[in-house]
Computed example of a mutant assay.
Amino acid sequence: MEDLNFYESVYALVRQIPEGRVTSYGAIARALGREGSARIVGYAMGNAGKANPPVPAHRVLNSKGQLSAKAAFGHPDLMQQLLENEGVKINNDRVVNFKSVFWDPLTEELI
């Protein structure tokens, strides 16, 4: 079983992603000093529904801006709907303006 403290660190960082912005599993891993651990961040996001306070897991995508984890949201359109409700444009399961809405925790101000 992965280190639950790492999961909590992931959740704390993901909670800081501003509304209308997205990031990647890899960016979260790098920001937490775990370069190459994007998959573990993905596992953490898969368990984010159990976290309290809630984690905006819909804002974490793969490195290409694809909604690769949309099946984890229970309905195939829910992840896209949540992002679109925040003003993020999606086309064919990919963020249209990925580079312009990308939030890098290493270079952006944290809350």
Rank of each mutant, 00 (worst) to 15 (best):
Y7N: 06
Y7Q: 07
E8V: 05
E8A: 10
S9H: 11
Y11D: 00
Y11T: 03
A12P: 04
A12N: 13
A12F: 04
V14H: 07
V14W: 02
R15E: 08
Q16K: 12
I17L: 04
I17A: 03
I17H: 12
P18Y: 02
E19V: 15
G20T: 10
G20Y: 11
G20E: 10
G20V: 08
R21Q: 13
V22E: 02
V22I: 11
S24L: 03
S24Q: 06
Y25I: 04
G26W: 11
G26R: 15
A27P: 14
I28P: 08
A29L: 05
R30L: 15
L32P: 14
G33H: 11
R34W: 14
R34C: 09
E35W: 14
G36I: 09
G36Q: 01
S37W: 13
A38L: 11
R39I: 07
R39Y: 15
I40L: 13
V41L: 03
G42E: 02
G42N: 09
Y43V: 06
Y43F: 13
M45D: 09
A48S: 15
A48Q: 12
A48V: 07
A51C: 05
N52R: 13
P53C: 01
P54R: 14
V55C: 06
V55R: 07
V55E: 01
P56H: 00
P56M: 01
P56Q: 01
P56V: 00
A57G: 05
A57Y: 02
A57N: 01
H58E: 01
R59F: 00
L61F: 02
L61H: 00
L61P: 01
N62V: 01
N62G: 09
K64C: 02
G65C: 03
A71W: 09
F73N: 02
G74M: 05
H75K: 08
H75Y: 12
D77P: 01
D77A: 09
D77V: 10
L78D: 10
Q80F: 03
Q80C: 04
L82Q: 14
L83N: 03
N85E: 15
N85F: 05
E86S: 12
G87Q: 04
V88H: 01
V88L: 12
K89Y: 08
I90L: 04
I90E: 00
N91I: 06
N91W: 10
N91Y: 13
N92V: 06
N92C: 04
D93W: 08
V95A: 00
V96M: 02
N97K: 08
F98D: 03
K99H: 13
S100K: 14
V101R: 03
V101L: 06
F102I: 00
F102V: 00
P105R: 07
L106A: 10
T107D: 06
E108S: 14
E108D: 13
L110A: 04
